[in-house]
Every structure is written in C-alpha cells, then in structure tokens.
Design a protein around this nucleic acid. Structure first.
Lengths: 189, 189
DNA sequence: ACCTGAACACCGTTCAAGT
DNA sequence: ACCTGAACACCGTTCAAGT
C-alpha cells in the first residue's frame, strides 16, 4: 500500500513546472520557514501565482508534497524499529528521528501539529501515521515495563512536538537536553 | 526599584488614545493572538494607524505595555516564593504560574522566547527577569538536593516555554501532563 | 505635542481569458 | 489541460501635513 497515491501523468510542461515549484519551495521553506511567501516562490520558479495554486491548492498541500519522500522514509524506519532494539531504545530513537525531521523547516513543528489536529489538512494522513507509530512504540515500551503505566501515546507525541519546537526556538543542544529529561520523566527509572 | 519606568504625563487626548489602544489590543490579542492585525486594532480603537505607532513603535512595545501589570505581579510572586515553601514546590508552582500567564494570548510563548533571545526587544528586560527568577528557584531546588545536579536554569526555562507552547497547540490538560512528566525527569526521586 | 491618512511595498487567493 | 496575470481584499510601516 503506497502512501503516495496514484498521480496520473501530467503534460510535459506541467510536470516541469511542478518540479521547479517543489525545488524552489524547498529552498524558500529552508530559508524562511514554512510560512515563506508563495508569491515569491512562484516568481523564483518563473511561473505565475495561479500556476502554483493550480498544482498545490494550499500551503499544506505544497508542504505535503515537499515532505512526501522524507515522510515515507520515516514511516519505513518507524515500521521496522520494533524488534530491532530494546523497546525503550526503539522509542527514543524514533523520537530523535521525528524531531530531527521537524528541524527541516522553521515552523514545521507547529505546522505538523495543526496537521494532526485538523482532519481536513492535506497533512492529516501523514501526521496521523506518525502519531500511530509513536503510539505503537510507546505501547511496546510500556508493556516491556520500561515506560510508566500512566504514560500515553499522546504524551510521547506531545514530547516529540515540544522537543522539535524547542530546537527551533533555542538550539538543537537545548532540544536534546529536553528530550533526555522528558525520557527520564516517562521512564520507570 | 520600579520596573515600569517614569512615564511623564501625556496630554489628555493622548492619554485617552493610549488607554483605548491598550484595551482594544488586549481584546484583539486575546481573540487572534499576539500577531493580530495592528491596523484593525487602530481602527477598532477609533484612531489612525499612525497614532498606534506613535504610542507603540513596535508590536513588542505594545505587548510589553499590555503585559506590564501581569509581569509585575509575576515578579512579585516569584521574588517571594523562595522560603515560602519547600524548594521543589516553589519551583513547580513558579513553572505553573508562568505557563498559565503565557496562555493569555496565542503565540505568547514564542513571543516571550524571542524576547529573551533578542537583546533589542522591548520585552527583553521582562523575559530576562523571568528567566532570572527561574534560575534562582532552580538553584535552590538543586542545592536542596531535589533537582538533579546536571539540571540547569536554562533547562527549566526551556521546559516552561515548551509547556506553555503545548498548551496553545493541544490542550491545557496535555500541557499539565507534560509539566508533570518534565518535573519527574528533572527530579532526584 | 499629538494626530491623520496617503503612500509604499508587500501579502494570499480567485478566476476570466488566453494558449 | 494548463498557464497567465489582473483583481480583490487585506497587511506593516513611514512620514509630510495638519491641529
């Protein structure tokens, strides 16, 4: 089951435009964050603003396309993690992977958070799947007796989100310290 | 030593405009967050946009004026907390107080974070003082042997900030759970 | 001393008209 | 099928001119 969905073939010029928009948007998001100007992206890509909207009806749709590959890699990694390691190690590694991913663009932590909450977001499916993997790994760590019995999957998702955001606000080092501290707080010593 | 600074008297009409702007801004920030439209605030207050800028040269200056009273109350509380309680209780209460304060306006957690980082922000002094109180209370808890020796004041500030942000993103309940979990992680149980 | 509001340089989003 | 770009409804910020 692919996450990508069936993309029926585009006309050659449309395909080129789509590709150029994605490249330009990646650079713009990287430099100015997920709220980078869409008009500027279209301009830099050498197309009219309407063309951008034609390909990506919303900022979330553009972000979803941009994150497609990275998310698929995360999903694959998250699905193979259980069994590979001791449950607590697997969970901690997962938390680090997602937090590192969220560091791709400034504002991404908040954006993904909205994607999880908003069922109509083009990012909702992706965010739900990320949260599902978190839930599964948390469950295993809990059953292994490594995680406190009261610690929910939502708690771990909140920690990952908060750690990601802290990385944007202060420094990756401070984010890592928060992660360590939070893991210690969820753990049955 | 007052935090307020000496405000020399304004002309009567200017004083009225300033007051109206603050009232309107409080409502707008409460409804739309700290990034609420300044033009709309001026319009709702019945003054021209230039008048708003005349009184508050930046969004941070407006926010600082808006938060003045609440911050002074926080400072007073934070200064009297040591000695009132067991060190860890004092620190935990402080964390809750600041997080509850940050819930006043959506986006305030991030805004205060920037104010701490940016030395030129009109909020810098306030944020530094909040961080200073956190540092002091953390130090006391550490010396009392309640906090891990490796836990820094910056760690506690990061936790407060992350908890505040989580409250905005998800729910106050989830924020409280994150706070409890983080305190457990910082503590020498 | 203070206020006004036009002016400038931007935005996001839609949609009729073109190819 | 797809692209263009004008049109609309907004922004933040400055500053000459008024009172």
């Amino acid at each position: 089951m692919s996450t990508t969905g069936s993309a029926r073939p585009l006309r050659a010029d449309a395909r080129r435009n789509r590709e150029r928009l994605l490249q330009t948007a990646d650079a713009a998001f990287g430099e100015h964050g997920v709220e980078a100007s869409l008009e500027q992206i279209a301009r830099s890509a050498g197309v009219a603003i309407g063309t951008l909207y034609g390909h990506f009806p919303s900022r979330a749709a553009l972000a979803a396309a941009l994150l497609r590959e990275r998310h698929d890699e995360l999903f694959a990694r998250g699905d193979s993690l259980p069994g590979e390691r001791v449950a607590l190690d697997a969970l901690t590694e997962w938390m680090r992977l997602v937090a590192a991913h969220a560091a791709a663009y400034h504002g991404l932590a908040e954006f993904l958070g909205r994607g999880l909450e908003d069922e109509n977001s083009e990012l909702h499916a992706d965010c739900t799947r990320l949260a599902g993997i978190t839930e599964r790994l948390a469950g295993q760590a809990r059953e292994a007796g490594a995680l406190g019995a009261h610690v929910t999957g939502a708690d771990v998702t909140a920690v990952i989100s908060a750690v990601s955001w802290t990385g944007e606000q202060t420094s990756p080092g401070q984010a890592e310290r928060l992660l360590a501290l939070a893991v210690r707080g969820m753990t049955t010593r």
